[in-house]
C-alpha cells in the first residue's frame, strides 16, 4: 500500500514538473494556459489519490478537494483565456480566428 502511494505521488510530482516546464517553454499565452491547466490538474489528482492510499481515513476530504479542483481549474483558465483575448495581446501565429465575430476585431467594437 505504501509503495503504491509513493508511486502515485511520484507520478503527481512529475506532472507538476511538466506543468511548470510547459509554462516556461510554450511560445504564447494561450498555449501556456493549456499546458499549465492540464498538467497541474492531473498532477493534483494523482498526488491526492496517493496521499489517500497512505491515509485511507482522509478519503472523503481528499475527494472533496479533487471535485473542487476538477470544477474550479478549467473555469479559472477559461476566464483567463477570455480576459487575455480581450486585453488584445494576440499572438501572430494564429491560422484561424472564429472569436472575432463574438468580440469584434481590434479596430471596432470593444476598443
Amino acid at each position: 500500500m505504501e509503495i503504491a502511494s509513493y508511486i502515485f505521488m511520484t507520478i503527481g510530482g512529475l506532472f507538476y514538473l511538466l506543468g511548470g516546464l510547459g509554462i516556461l517553454r510554450m511560445p504564447d499565452t494561450f498555449n501556456r494556459i493549456q499546458a499549465g491547466t492540464k498538467a497541474t490538474t492531473l498532477g493534483a489528482f494523482t498526488l491526492l489519490i496517493g496521499i489517500g492510499f497512505n491515509n485511507p481515513e482522509w478519503f472523503p476530504k481528499l475527494l472533496l478537494i479533487i471535485v473542487f479542483i476538477a470544477f474550479a481549474n478549467p473555469i479559472g483558465s477559461s476566464a483567463l483565456a477570455k480576459a487575455s483575448y480581450k486585453s488584445c495581446d494576440l499572438p501572430d501565429n494564429l491560422v484561424q480566428d472564429d472569436l472575432i465575430d463574438l468580440f469584434g476585431g481590434k479596430e471596432d467594437g470593444l476598443n
Binding site: Y16, I23, G36, T40, T41, A44, G76, S77, S84
Partner: peptide, 9 residues
C-alpha cells in the same frame, strides 16, 4: 497564468 499554476501546485 503562472500564478494560477503556482496556486494549484
Amino acid at each position: 497564468v503562472s500564478l494560477d499554476t503556482f496556486n494549484i501546485i
